[in-house]
Each structure stands twice: as C-alpha cells, then as structure tokens.
C-alpha cells in the first residue's frame, strides 16, 4: 500500500475565473493514509469548489493540491482526468449512476478510464459482484438497469463503484442525505467496513454532524477553508 498522504492542500487559493462567486483559500489541510475525515459545512460554504479542486476538475491559482503524492497542477487536463479515475473514488449525494446501464457496468465504469486501477481490480466482473454482495445487494441485481433500483440500493452501488480497484482516496459528497435515518446508519456501517477493507482514506462532506461518531476526525469546513465573496 502507498505511504503517500492521500490528500494535501497547501496554501491553496482559488476563484472561479470570469464569474462572480467565491474566493476560496485553504491554508493547510492534509489526510493520513486510511484516515476518515468528516467535513461539516452548510451548502454555499464552498464545498463544491473544494471538491472540484480535490478532484482536479479545476486547478488553484495559488498553492498546491497533492493527491496521493502528485501535484494536480503538474498534470495536463487529460492526464488529470485519468489521474482522477486512477486515484479517487467519487460518491455523490444522489443520481450517481447511469440509469440505463446495468449495475455491473456502472460499477466497472471508472476502470474503463483507469488501466492501473483495472489491473488492481483483477477480474473486474467478479470484483464488482463481490463488492456489491458485501454491500448487501442481491446478486440478481447485477444485470438490472441501475435506474430501477431504490435510492438506498443506488447509493450502495455508488460505493461499490468508488471502491473498485482500491483507490487511495474516496470523496463522498453528502452520500446519506437522500436516505432516511435508519438506512443512513446501515449505509455508513457498510461504507466504513468496505473502505477499511480496501485500505482507502475517506473524505466525506456533509451538513449533518450526527454522522461524526464513526470518523477519525470531524472538522468544520470554515476551520480549514476561508471564503470571500467577490464580484466578477
């Protein structure tokens, strides 16, 4: 397993080019391998921007974002996209899946753009099924179109997709907000078990501080990042 820090943000400064919005600064934030961190923040506190920076969708004007030891700004756009596919598993709030594709195809999708990760996954079909079963999905769902699953099932498929090929970093954007309280807890239990099994670090963003108990660290977004509103 890698000994690199899965995520380092060092004196990062960013503002969306050409439009009004935030200027986001992150002086210093880092995660240890296999660490789980919960970032608490209300919507509008710059968390989408932060996630875009971490995933390399945008690059900061100042400072360095380092994922698994690599400075994202040192990569060209196409290489950053591939790097994201290789190193980061992403779970959204909702509508994670391509509704017309089967569960198996959805889980295997990131491997399509990440040859190294595909290598680590071994037999991709079997690995996808193993993850889905471990996350409590019935085996007959593997070939079902993802759009037919319940929201809870879809979120578990999204977890399987993020974890396949064991990326060093999992980024989850309010993955439980669409679930009711009871399913939330079961979902988090399964998520933590599998993240641990994969040896990945987990960065979850949420506005719900009740989730905190399971995490190694709970931080408020405003503790690590400052936002200023700027005109265009």
């Amino acid at each position: 397993m890698t000994t690199n820090a899965p995520l380092v943000l060092d004196r990062v400064g960013f503002r969306w080019p050409g439009r009004a919005g935030f200027r986001l600064t992150v002086p210093d934030f880092a995660m240890r391998p296999q660490e789980s961190v919960l970032l608490l923040g209300e919507s509008g506190s710059g968390k989408s921007t932060l996630l875009s920076l971490i995933c390399g969708i945008v690059v900061p004007q100042q400072g360095v974002v380092r994922v698994d030891g690599t400075d994202l700004a040192s990569l060209r756009a196409g290489a950053r996209d591939r790097f994201r596919a290789e190193r980061i598993g992403v779970i959204f709030q909702q509508f994670n899946l391509l509704p017309y594709a089967s569960v198996e195809d959805n889980v295997r999708l990131p491997l399509r753009f990440a040859p190294d990760r595909r290598g680590r996954a071994g037999d991709a079909g079997a690995e996808a099924e193993r993850l889905c079963l471990a996350l409590g999905l019935a085996p007959e769902l593997m070939s079902a179109p993802a759009g037919r699953l319940s929201v809870g099932q879809q979120q578990r498929v999204a977890v399987a997709r993020a974890l396949i090929g064991q990326p060093p970093l999992i980024v989850a954007d309010e993955p439980t907000s669409a679930l009711d309280a009871r399913t939330q807890d079961a979902f988090l239990g399964l998520l933590f078990d599998q993240v641990r099994a994969a040896g990945s670090a987990l960065l979850m963003v949420s506005h719900d501080d009740r989730l905190g108990a399971r995490f190694d660290r709970v931080l408020r977004l405003e503790d690590i990042a400052q936002t200023q509103r700027v005109a265009a």
Binding site: I57, R82, R84, A85, V90, L97, R112, F113, R161
Partner: peptide
C-alpha cells in the same frame, strides 16, 4: 448534464 457529470467524475475526458 447529470449523466455527463457522472462520466466526468469517473475520469472521462471532455473529449470522451
């Protein structure tokens, strides 16, 4: 657009 965002998050280049 949502579908496109999923593709992007999975590492698909805009060219894809």
């Amino acid at each position: 657009r949502r579908e496109m965002a999923i593709w992007r998050a999975m590492g698909a280049r805009p060219g894809v």
